[in-house]
């Protein structure tokens, strides 16, 4: 009945999201009086694998089959299912990021295991297994009861505090059987942005809406994000207009994020926008309209022109940072 955590790696490295998953998995294992096994697929060196022990992994299973060099959902599902069987896992935990969303539902069918996706806290009860998750794009919570023996959970990013432990993890390699006809996807091109903080990973996000008036005004948004070590984002019309790339679009139909700090310049705070950012710990709004709905979601606000406030904001941060 162990807890199995699947974490991907990014060019051989884990990141905060992995540590969150392992911390959460380890907490579940504690609640269920069992152990935590982590599955890693792809080439990751031993020191990096071992680093997960710090967050409560008891055992790390590593799979390095060349056929799994790129993500094929069908093949990954088959491999994870083999590990679940081998480990007799009762719970499988994945991230609710793109990869987790791609694999978890397939795994649910393969294992006949009910799924609760995008959970943000430990289960309320383990019998019957009940976990709360956001529904209606953040307008409510639902208590999901999983009725099957095996349970699949996907954890929302930035929602669970990392807990450091003192444990050591044992490393074990595993060679799954992956038949060739399983893989019909072929990755023919990869484009990656390097050196930028990813919107979904960022602790601080600086965002602009139509109130920014023109794509030419984004320089200060980028400067502020850089200064704060954060990422940039935007509202939907801004990406629809092509002012910013669609990857930056946050909200119900874009990215759903949960940074520590979200700073919104010239964003009205439409319900669909808030659906993507309301899990932020702190929201700051700068808007000329004192009645803009964004102020109802915000913790701090300035009623004023974003184009005038932004340079002052940048200067104030520079000043404070140099103190």
């Amino acid at each position: 009945m162990s807890v199995l955590v699947y974490t991907e790696n990014w060019d051989g490295r884990f990141k905060k999201l992995s540590n969150e998953l392992v911390s959460y998995g380890s907490k579940l294992a504690e609640m269920l009086n069992t152990s935590t096994t982590v599955l890693s697929i792809g080439k990751v060196d031993e020191a990096e694998l071992k680093s997960l022990g710090k967050y409560g992994a008891d055992k790390i299973i590593t799979v390095t089959d060349e056929k799994l060099a790129t993500l094929d959902n069908r093949a990954y599902t088959a491999v994870i299912a083999q590990v679940v069987e081998k480990e007799k896992s009762g719970i499988v935990l994945l991230s609710n990021n793109n990869t987790g969303k791609a694999i978890a539902p397939r795994l649910s069918v393969k294992l006949k295991a009910g799924i609760a996706s995008g959970i943000t806290a430990v289960p309320e009860k383990t019998s019957p297994f009940t976990a709360a998750k956001k529904v209606f794009s953040g307008k409510a919570f639902a208590k999901f009861v999983i009725k099957t023996d095996i349970k699949i959970l996907t954890l929302a990013q930035n929602s669970y505090e990392i807990v450091e432990k003192t444990g050591q993890a044992a490393i074990e390699s595993f060679s799954p059987s992956v038949s060739n006809d399983l893989i019909r996807t072929k990755v023919i091109n990869v484009e990656k942005q390097t050196g930028k903080v990813l919107l979904t990973d960022a602790e601080i996000v600086v965002s602009g809406g139509r109130g920014m008036k023109s794509p030419d005004n984004w320089g200060k948004i980028e400067e502020l994000a850089d200064l704060l070590g954060g990422a940039t984002a935007c509202s939907r019309p801004v990406s629809d207009e092509g002012w910013r790339p669609h990857e930056e679009h946050t909200g119900q139909t874009g990215k759903i994020i949960a940074p520590n700090l979200y700073i919104a310049f010239g964003i009205s705070g439409a319900i669909q926008h808030l659906a993507g950012v309301s899990s932020s710990k702190f929201i700051v709004a700068v808007n000329t309209d004192k009645d803009a709905p964004i102020f109802e979601a915000a913790d701090y606000g300035i009623v004023g022109d974003a184009l005038q406030v932004l340079p002052k904001f940048v200067d104030a941060v520079k000043e404070l940072k140099s103190l």
């Binding site: 069908r74 969303k101 791609a102 397939r106 069918v109 799924i115």
Partner: peptide
């Protein structure tokens, strides 16, 4: 219900490749 589940489940039920 924001489940992100139906498409992936369907692919597995049909034993078909999926891209998410």
């Amino acid at each position: 219900y924001n489940g992100s589940s139906v498409g992936g489940m369907l692919a597995e039920l049909l034993d078909m490749s999926s891209i998410s």
